[in-house]
Amino acid sequence: MNWLRDFVKPKIRALVSKKNVPDDLWTKCSNCEQMIFHRELASNLQVCPHCSYHMRMNATSRLQMLFDNAEYRIIEFPTGLADPLKFKDTKKYTDRLKENRAKTNNQDAIIAAHGKMGGVGVVIAAFDFDFMGGSMSIATGEALLSASRLAILQQAPLIVIPASGGARMQEGILSLMQMARTVAAIQEVKEAGLPYIVLLADPTYGGVSASFAMLGDIAISEPGAMIGFAGRRVIQETIREKLPNDFQKAEYLLDHGMIDMVVTRRELRPMMIKILSLLQNKTPSAQVLAIKKK
């Protein structure tokens, strides 16, 4: 297989730390409607200081929040202007891609990076909901594959953070095939004996939830995150019944045995570091042994 060559070769470039200055200095919480100053919102990890509502976070913020000292290296993956179906709805797909690339500064709906968490080397792939609703494309599949194979090469745990409405319709059946493809990719990580941790972010739906996202060794989510296969509206139209208020929320999934834990954003990093340490450092450390001797 030509995979080793394929992903070792891509240049791994350091993140240029460019402070994103928001256009609006104030954000209105969509839950309690209070106004929040942008610095306060950023320092509070996009969580409303008044009502603890967890707002969506883009991929870059996710990576900065999780890696030690917000330091990481981005794993480049092949993209190009792929439009295999020459798809056009009210707009050309290639135009949509260009627009979303300009808007988000990302190549596609995912950023994969490697770095350290609590001193442990990890690979993290985070979806960017701002890029076409985080939809799963051939390129996102490619990124997950690169991330998986780098994790194996580095013998590092893989953390994936989906935030996606599902498949990218503009890539048709090839988007659907990414379900099998991403499952095959994480299977390699699992079979290499490495931990595969999923942080199901708001929202995780459709072809994304029904593939790699629901197969984590450990499944974590955040308060209020919406997770499901079919969307609320489709279900409502099908069954014509009122749905429970907390339906498809992370807490609902926890109650029904579908995920391991719901963790507030502030506690995410410490919790993940604790888990990683347990899974990666399996025997007493030299320090612990020394203390025992005394």
Binding site: P78, G80, A82, I138, G141, A180
Partner: peptide
Amino acid sequence: KFIEMGRVGIVG
């Protein structure tokens, strides 16, 4: 087969 599938149009 599935890893290779859908790499159509990918520019390396």
